[in-house]
Computed example of a mutant assay.
Amino acid sequence: MTDTSQARDKLALAADLPLEDGLRLYQQVAPQVGYAKVGLSLFVEHGPAAVAAFQKLGARVFLDLKLHDIPNTVELAAARAGALGVSLLTVHAAGGEAMLKAAVKGAREGARAKGHEAPRVLAVTVLTSMSAEDVTAVGFSGAPDVAALRLARLAVGAGVDGLVCSPREAEAFRRELGPTPFLCTPGIRPAGAAKGDQSRAETPAFAVRAGADLLVVGRPIHTAADPLSAARSIAEEVFTA
């Protein structure tokens, strides 16, 4: 059997489930998956307790709140997130330079106040659920990849640590922005898997070859008859890509 331990830090479980189910699932796949992504549904229902529950299982927590508000409000929220000891925190790049700078400042100060390592602040460019028509409808000019790269440049210039993009944009981000930004790609679907509501999904191997540092996987693991085997299969693809 392939040793996939090196792939573990490149995989995050999207724990978009009731908390007890998400914790049970993470325990099953933890040998292959290093991060647990706590999103809006879990955080709205359980708040910081959801973060702490996954941390107790040894997970690095990816707090996916996609903050988007005036700079002062985002700074305060990011500081609270940093104080929780999360590893990753998302904000919307479309919030603009001042908001992005405030998020980074808040996250670092909140973490420092509690003695934690500062989380990476990741700016969401264009949601992977959005098609070209959706991008036009909300007022962005250009195709999704063009709009995403424009937002990525803005966010990196504002000092964020990384970016969230579809696997299809990752290669262009690497080419344009270099090796430094931490690239996170949701919308991961193994070959043959249903895409669901993801308009710009790709395989794990595609994402890794394009330059992604972290792959977020949800339904391909949630719906598997054997979640650990499904996670191992994805990890093997990541390892050999």
Rank of each mutant, 00 (worst) to 15 (best):
T4G: 08
Q6M: 09
Q6N: 14
R8V: 03
A14D: 09
A15P: 08
D16H: 14
D16V: 08
P18W: 14
L19E: 07
L23M: 14
R24G: 09
R24W: 06
P31I: 02
P31E: 00
Q32W: 10
A36F: 09
V38W: 02
V38I: 06
G39E: 00
L40Y: 12
L40N: 07
L42K: 05
G47P: 04
A53R: 15
F54A: 10
K56H: 13
L63G: 06
K66N: 05
D69F: 04
V74D: 12
E75K: 13
A78T: 10
A79P: 11
R80C: 07
A83L: 05
A83R: 15
L84E: 15
S87A: 13
L89G: 14
A93P: 06
E97F: 09
M99D: 08
A102M: 04
K105W: 00
G106C: 02
K114T: 11
R120V: 00
L122G: 12
A123M: 06
A123Q: 07
A123D: 04
V126H: 03
L127E: 01
M130F: 15
S131Y: 01
V138R: 03
V138S: 03
F140T: 03
S141N: 13
D145W: 06
A148T: 05
L149I: 04
R150I: 01
L151T: 01
A152S: 09
A155F: 02
V156H: 04
L163T: 00
C165W: 12
P167F: 05
E169N: 07
E171T: 07
T180F: 04
P181T: 02
L183Q: 00
T185N: 05
G187R: 00
G187S: 00
R189Q: 01
A193N: 01
A194I: 02
A194M: 06
D197V: 04
Q198F: 04
S199P: 01
S199G: 03
R200E: 03
E202P: 07
P204S: 15
P204A: 11
A205L: 07
A205E: 15
A207W: 14
V208F: 05
L214N: 13
H222W: 14
A224P: 07
A224H: 05
A225M: 05
L228N: 00
A231M: 05
S233Q: 14
E236L: 10
E237Y: 08
F239C: 07
